[in-house]
Design a binder for these strands. Structure first.
Lengths: 336, 336
DNA sequence: CTGTTAGCGCCTTCAT
DNA sequence: ATGAAGGCGCTAACAG
């Protein structure tokens, strides 16, 4: 039923090799011949079969993308960066949600390899030995986006989470705060969880303040957890005067908890978030946040992957993108 | 280099057909033989080539998904519903952003068909003749999600946008309002734009209020437009006492504009949004909104698609999911 | 229950 | 510049 390259060849009075050449833009075709073939293609409504092409050429122009949760504000932005660059380089993406479940992740890697993707883009929290094993035992190139394996064996694109945690805390220190609370992410996440927390601790120590256990709480990155954990902070005999939350959603929860208790942000308590998702502009006061360039991470990761798929030389296989703090109304102007 | 079904056959001392059978779970294999084959597969680390399988079987277990923008709060939720059900039925999805540009949409349809997807899930605003043409001239089944073509020629899953606009407005009418403003979506979008607006008009007329031009503004669905358009409303000699925004982002913008001008929500002005994205819980006051079940629309659309791909009988090819209003603090309790 | 044999639609040398 | 022919790895009758 569907028209094949063979039908076109017959219609145009040439061989299938010639049709293949014009379809693939091979210059070794006489203009007149090309024209005939093009006409036949048009007449028959020929549409190349990418699966057949994939089998013959061993390239699918498709990359697999494993993402924790596409409905997340954070990851969907990353995904957009990935897809845009993929499109630019003529790749399509197969998108899979992993919910960060290791078993699912490993199974997805396998499925995607079965589908003969030309490359793999992996997002997740912790990269364990099993991941490395699965990802390095194939010749299909892989790039990690917004994460990194401990020994930097895999190419990756991310920011320095230790430093970003440090910077956020330091900004609060510089505003004269002594009681700076942190709502961390899950600590089994080495980067967005642990590293940001480590940065926080170091900044406190460097400031001669030191860590106070009661000012640290571990959240789950969702709004509600920022809300409830902050309420607990507020019941302390001596509540914090500033809060650093490991992501923006929790930071916004913190703001609301503070406001609900009749206090003012930033007047009574300053709040700083992390990631700078679009939401930060959609609350009052607008949230000061550490900018993690999600879109760019996705875009750069995909670009890097194209280089590997193309066997191009790459200078640095671990790229750290810069971060910075975007100041808004949830913090006061810095003290002089 | 890679191990093929043929290698496994040799290793196990059987024919490739037998290997194929055990790989595909065909019951017509003696247990002992199956065991031998499985052992050989294990030993060789065989991984089936889905591209070859696709060529031979004419099934790719992959569906194409065309979405306006995966980074949107609205569509990413839809996408998650799609992907979850796809996974449940063993399909993978190729995800493509269209930005609702017709040219891009048509080109994506073509690319996805070249890739031999088993089905197509389309999201977008307006379904034009060209779309219909492209989508109906192939035997690959298509389902529209969160949209619908005017003549219902294609299967679709959505809500009744006319009714939802009507209901939102009526809720405001019932609260005693006479000056009810609406911030519409782009009116070239027949459903989320035009239909909701039509519902609004009808509700006003039914209430004996009638349409007031100065109380209608067209936004672009983004927060900023809700913010700025509401500011304009507030400068009217006689500002509205209630606002219905065509989506939640604009509604939140409206709330902030009202608050910025020193007025109270819902005390001075009530606000109602549309869609019920996760954001509605993350503002103060929390936003009353018309629930459009994004996740379910995606899930149901995908489920419907599996039926078509499977040649199952379907009762109703146009499904309208129910909507309702979730009341929160941006509206006052209904007057008795 | 198992093996044989054709393709699936295209790319890609290798000749010409 | 063009054609012929051999796969790519697997499924799907069809025999047996």
């Amino acid at each position: 039923m569907p028209v094949t390259i063979y039908d076109v060849a017959r219609e145009a009075g040439v061989s299938m090799a010639t049709v293949s050449r014009v379809v693939n833009g091979n210059p070794n075709v006489k203009p007149l011949t090309r024209k005939k073939v093009l006409a036949a293609i048009e007449r028959l409504g020929y549409r190349p079969n990418a699966v057949a092409r994939g089998l013959a050429s061993k390239k699918t122009t498709t990359v697999g993308v494993i993402i924790p949760d596409i409905s997340s504000l954070f990851f969907s932005e990353l995904a957009r960066g990935i897809e845009d660059i993929a499109t630019m380089y003529k790749y399509n993406i197969i998108l899979c949600n992993s919910d960060q479940r290791m078993e699912k992740e490993l199974q997805l890697i396998n499925t995607l390899l079965e589908k003969q993707v030309d490359g793999l883009l992996f997002m997740g929290a912790e990269i364990k030995e099993d991941h490395l094993q699965a990802l390095t035992s194939t010749s299909v190139p892989t790039v990690l986006a917004a994460t990194r394996d401990a020994d930097n064996v895999l190419p990756s694109v991310s920011i320095d989470h230790y430093q970003s945690g440090y910077d956020a805390t330091e900004a609060l220190v510089q505003r004269g705060h002594k009681r700076i609370a942190m709502i961390t992410g899950p600590l089994n996440d080495p980067l967005s969880g642990l590293m940001r927390f480590e940065g926080y601790k170091k900044a406190l120590i460097d400031a001669g303040i030191g860590l106070v256990d009661e000012l640290v709480a571990t959240g789950n990155l969702f709004y509600e957890s920022g809300l409830s954990l902050t309420k607990q902070f507020l019941q302390l005999p001596e509540p914090p005067t500033a809060i650093f939350a490991a992501n923006d959603e929790m930071a916004i929860g913190a703001i609301h908890a503070i406001q609900d208790s009749g206090l003012n942000v930033p007047g009574d308590i300053e709040v700083i978030g992390h990631d700078n998702i679009r939401l930060v502009e959609m609350v009052r006061p607008r949230l000061t946040s550490v900018v993690q360039p999600m879109y760019d991470i996705g875009a750069v990761a995909m670009r890097l992957l194209t280089k590997y798929m193309n066997n191009e030389h790459v200078e640095e296989h671990v790229v750290l993108l810069p971060h910075r703090i975007e100041y808004r109304e949830s913090t006061r102007p810095e003290e002089a």
